[in-house]
């Protein structure tokens, strides 16, 4: 169990009669890039909220970074990073202020914040923009910065919810370079995307349909199993019979 970043067993979340997440079970290893895919309304967001310590499951078990999703939500939050397309940074704070703010929230010490933020700004090539408001940055830069901020406190796991939505194709690839690097440094990456080529960059992926995990394997193994050439087709085969369509 020590080298599992996430362990889920029969995890369920029910709203009234509606089973948003229906007995899902899977494990994610440390340092793995795990793609969490699914049709719209399949229950991905609900499952992610539980794993991030933001919502309690109705039944089943799950541990994230070794901590229980029922009893140790605060410890989970301290040990993970999170970014999404929708919420990432404060537009009316500067780049440095955003980094300081998130570093501070996650309890990184002041001298360390100072040292590492200078280093980060340099790595990203944003020295000139460091004291400018984030709101004025191009989307691609924002997303790269948001990712760097999400892993600034060196979490064990980073959750990325459609991190590359709407981003240009070159920046999208640069973003995945950063993901690979984080993974090489031992950070587990849990990522959702609607770009099927990005699913191929994951070590393993799961595909959720109507609240259940319908498939979980490496992209190569999944394509072999369905005897198709692309992840697009795998997804299509699994999701076309989905009954739920809500977002």
């Amino acid at each position: 169990m020590e080298n599992k970043a996430i362990v889920c067993k029969d995890l369920t979340k029910q709203f009234g009669d509606f089973k948003a997440v229906d007995k899902i079970s899977f494990e994610v290893s440390e340092g793995e890039i795990f793609g969490f895919l699914g049709a719209n309304g399949a229950g991905k967001t609900t499952a992610m909220r539980i794993l991030c310590g933001l919502s309690y499951p109705t039944s089943g078990e799950a541990k994230v970074a070794g901590f229980d999703v029922y009893k140790e939500q605060e410890k989970i939050k301290k040990n993970i990073g999170y970014m999404s397309q929708k919420f990432s940074l404060y537009d009316n704070l500067t780049i440095l202020e955003n980094i300081e703010f998130y570093g501070g929230v996650y309890g990184v010490s002041r001298p360390e914040i100072k040292e590492r933020s200078a280093e980060l700004v340099k790595t990203l090539g944003l020295e000139k923009e460091a004291k400018k408001l984030v709101g004025g940055l191009p989307l691609g830069w924002k997303q790269k910065l948001a990712f760097s901020v999400a892993v600034f406190h060196r979490p064990k796991i980073v959750f990325l919810d459609e991190p590359t939505g709407g981003v240009d194709p070159i920046t999208r690839r640069q973003f995945w370079d950063m993901i690979y690097e984080a993974s090489a440094n031992g950070i587990t990456v849990f990522v959702t995307t609607h770009y099927m080529d990005e699913a191929e960059y994951c070590n393993r992926i799961s595909i959720m349909v109507d609240g259940r995990v319908e498939a979980i394997d490496s992209p190569t193994a999944l394509k072999e199993r369905f005897n198709v050439a692309s992840m697009d087709e795998v997804f299509y085969e699994l999701a076309r019979n989905a009954k739920r369509t809500s977002d």
Partner: peptide, 10 residues
């Protein structure tokens, strides 16, 4: 079709 899954997009 932004943010919509592969099946609905098709």
């Amino acid at each position: 079709t932004t943010g919509v899954d592969v099946v609905s997009r098709s």
